[in-house]
Design a protein around this nucleic acid. Structure first.
Length: 583
RNA sequence: GGACAUGUGGCCUAGCUAGGAUAUGGCGACAGCCUCCUAAGCUGUAUAUCAAGGGUUCGAAUCCCUUCAUGUCCGCCA
């Protein structure tokens, strides 16, 4: 059974055109395009042949169409103006597509194993406080890409790079060890909007970080203490490392609790300090010292950006401090070299502020003789608020936990309104699926490099182009199937309604879409497709009654509904959204 | 100042890699559709100098150049 129902039609039409051109002794190839609705399924524009053949594009299209014989795979092959258009035989497409889905079911859209091992790093937020909506774009993007690449047949390991080495983490630890949180006046900085959140360790811990930062800024004694800790830490003091790691872990646990609610999990946590303690960073520095593109300033090692062709910045990219201790990017280089030892490809999901750093890391990896092409950074722009950039310090911030609570809460009210008769437990489950789904979808539907201004009314929209719209279609399909006995024999030739044809064409596109998005590492076309498929299913639902149809037609339609339900479920899964049986 | 990205109806957005047939859809607005498988749905109407200006081309939202706007970066911070 074919993996991609559309592919055979596509390649056959290309062959036809190729053969026709060969018969006319034309050495050129024609590109395949997707024409506007009502003009067939594949189009070959003939403009570029006009000069060569000294004929009008329309005339060429006509001539080509006469060269091509009729074929069972296409219901129409004809010239329309300057285009040669192919219309797929809908009966055949219906047959191949529905059978393929019935055969593969949950696996429809999943390609066979490639054996390619990929490390996909995402989120990697500093563990000093809770995730806010701006940072949440990273895990949502990363997790969705991971799901797409898994469906492309790759072996994916998702990884959170835990920064337990920075000044921020030491500051947090100093705070935890030296400050006591008295009364509740201190909580005014981070108002706990609900009980669940206030009990989470990330929201609990951030106070120590913020208060420690304030003390450090105003009290040079505190600053000195923190600096002493950092110095000892960088001299590989294991005891401090353990204390810092313990605090990071607590915050990390809180973040993970939030992310689990969005069905985001990590296969691995890579601790930054590991590369200091195992000597990898020392090795990197040693190798870089010997390199012709590096030099010293006050015994601080730097890379000369001009020599490696990076312009528009200061020329010096520092790799160590003058005391010889490492910097973030140097550790990141060691980390990447380590990843390259174990994986075929290394993908990083990064905010656009990391563009220069990522470029340099890749470059240095290349300078050290490794294949930098295997490192593939993927960037996204920031989420801001209408008032401006998110800032924890200014209190201008929307925490992910608050967004989830609000969204699930609103979803709960909606379910209550629409389906009061359902069991309370079921309503909770639906609200959770809809509320969290809306958040993921709202972020992922937009191209990663576009900046997003967060607006509550948009994030909490449950209508139109939103997760609940797609989930609702799935629930409708499920509901029809629940009302019937086991699917009997069916004759797909009975499915002739235009909406049925449009629906099956959308179903047929799914596997190749997964492949394309895996290759280009884009998520938003999947969201667009999911919406389109759901919309077409809703139109089918309107035009083609299933359970009230004649028995033969009913059986055929039930097969189409089953195929649609699998595909909707699979696309929802690709986006990390729950596919509810009812809502 | 330099570098990278983004700019499409009132708002959000697809299309840009590989230039082609009347620029995708949603929100909001207006007008309709529940004796019929869940109306978180469906149908219709109005709204676009594709940031601006040049260029390449038979043809440009798409490629090139310039300008403007927005975001990000240009720390011996992470």
């Amino acid at each position: 059974m074919t993996v991609d129902p559309l592919e055979m039609f596509k390649s056959r039409s290309k062959e036809f055109v190729k053969e026709a051109l060969a018969r006319l002794n034309i050495a050129m190839e024609l590109p395949l395009e997707l024409p506007p609705e009502g003009m067939g399924d594949f189009a070959f524009p003939c403009f570029m042949l006009a000069r060569e053949m000294k004929k009008s594009p329309a005339g060429i299209a006509k001539q080509l169409s006469q060269e091509i014989l009729e074929d069972a795979m296409f219901s129409r092959i004809e010239a329309q103006g300057p285009y040669l258009n192919f219309s797929i035989n809908p009966e055949m497409l219906m047959q191949i597509t529905v059978e393929s889905i019935m055969d593969k079911r949950e696996e429809y859209g999943t390609w066979s194993q490639t054996g390619e091992k990929i490390n996909l790093e995402h989120t990697s937020a500093n563990p000093n406080g809770p995730l806010h909506v701006g940072r949440a774009r990273n895990p949502i993007l990363g997790d969705t890409i991971a799901r797409i690449l898994r469906k492309c047949g790759h072996d994916i390991t998702t990884e959170f790079y835990v920064d337990d080495m920075g000044k921020q983490q030491v500051t947090l630890t100093w705070g935890v060890e030296n400050l006591t949180r008295e009364g509740d006046e201190s909580t005014k900085e981070i108002p706990a909007k609900n009980l669940k959140k206030s009990k989470k360790p990330d929201h609990e811990m951030v106070w120590y970080y913020q208060e420690a930062t304030r003390r450090m800024d105003s009290d040079s004694n505190v600053l000195a203490q923190i600096n002493r800790m950092i110095a000892k830490y960088e001299e590989k003091d294991e005891e401090i490392a353990i204390r810092v790691k313990e605090n990071c872990q607590k915050v990390l646990d809180g973040m993970n609790t939030s992310l689990r609610r969005l069905d985001i999990h990590f296969d691995s946590f890579a601790w930054e300090s590991k590369h200091i303690f195992n000597g990898n960073v020392d090795k990197v520095v040693k190798n870089l010292k010997a390199h012709e593109f590096t030099d010293y300033e006050d015994s601080a090692l730097y890379l000369d950006l001009e020599k490696v062709g990076i312009t528009g910045q200061e020329n010096k990219f520092y790799l160590t401090r003058s005391d010889g201790s490492s910097l973030y990017s140097t550790r990141d280089i060691a980390y990447h070299l380590d990843k390259l030892d174990h994986y075929d490809r290394v993908i990083d999901i990064l905010g656009e502020d990391h563009k220069l750093k990522a470029k340099v890391v890749r470059l240095v990896v290349g300078l050290l003789g490794q294949e930098k092409e295997k490192i593939e950074p993927l960037f996204y722009s920031f989420v801001s608020l209408p008032e401006g950039k998110m800032s924890t310090r200014l209190g201008r911030v929307v925490y992910l936990d608050d967004l989830i609570e609000e969204s699930v809460g609103r979803a709960r009210k909606e379910v209550e309104k629409r389906r009061p008769e359902l069991a309370s437990e079921l309503k909770c489950g639906i609200a959770e699926a809809v509320g969290t789904g809306a958040i993921r979808y709202n972020i992922i539907r937009v191209q990663a490099e576009k900046q997003i201004v967060f607006k509550w009314e948009e994030a909490l929209s449950f209508e139109g182009n939103s997760a609940p719209f797609i989930q609702y279609s799935h629930a409708r399909a499920s509901s029809i199937l629940q009302k019937t006995a086991v699917l009997g024999d069916y004759d797909l030739k009975l499915l002739k309604h235009p909406t049925e044809i449009l629906l099956v064409k959308a179903l047929a596109r799914f596997p190749s879409l997964i492949k394309e998005c895996g290759d280009s590492m884009e998520c938003h076309p999947i969201a667009g497709y999911a919406f389109e498929l759901a919309s077409l299913f809703n139109q089918f639902y309107r035009d083609c009654p299933v359970l009230q149809a004649e028995p033969d037609v009913m059986n055929a339609r039930l097969a189409l509904v089953t195929a649609s339900r699998y595909t909707l479920s699979n696309v929802l899964d690709t986006l990390g959204l729950v596919a509810p049986e009812e809502m």
